[in-house]
Nucleic acid binder design. Structure first.
Lengths: 100, 100
DNA sequence: CTATCCCGTAAGTCAACGCTAACCGTAAGT
DNA sequence: ACTTACGGTTAGCGTTGACTTACGGGATAG
């Protein structure tokens, strides 16, 4: 679970994910649209792939990367699992505060 | 946005958030239930507070920490904003793959 | 007013991370 | 076969971040 958050914690990787959410792209195309070198993008994609946030497909010499629903789905599940409880605990806090 | 992800990227901070999602706690109580020193917990709480993931309330000499809905809400909004587009792009990928 | 909790902060150390530069492998085109 | 294009990998550097120990400050009890 922390892998997914750690992957999105890097601004560059978050930018990559947001680009790929629009449409799949090759590594070179991503590097061209971002202020980093191509190897850097490749390394980031490796991390994102290990976190199941992106998928890659071979197309000739190029590799097309796209979003893998598994990663974002895991985050969504984690959120759903803690959202209700957190809101309930927060409501009690507010109520206790207004009792002052 | 990256602040929230970076905050949850640390396993210890994720554990703290999950504990606080159950019920608000003091710093010492958190440190007692986690395998780290109390100053470490305090530092983590500072990061979580800057990411709007926790709130703190003074109660005598103790400070009670609880979940701040703002942080988790921001993550949820980010997810909702990219989830649909990502799924659409993913569906096109799968369709293209089955055309082989 | 003194003593005791409880917590935040500063200093220092050690590991992890992101970036660039250079190299190697693979797939098309001539 | 040679060249070009595209991408993954490694080594090295610089920086960031997490942890412990030690210290300082505010609130409560006696």
């Amino acid at each position: 679970m922390t892998n997914a958050f750690a992957a999105l914690a890097e601004p560059m990787r978050l930018a990559i994910v947001e680009r790929l959410a629009e449409r799949p792209m090759s590594v070179g195309e991503l590097a061209a649209r971002l202020p980093v070198s191509r190897p850097a993008v490749s390394q980031h994609l490796k991390v994102l792939k290990e976190a199941a946030l992106v998928r890659d497909r071979a197309e000739g010499t190029r590799r097309i990367y796209g979003i893998d629903p598994a990663g974002l789905g895991a985050i969504r599940q984690w959120l759903d699992r803690h959202w209700e409880r957190a809101l309930a605990a927060y409501a009690e806090e507010v109520e206790r505060e207004e009792k002052k």
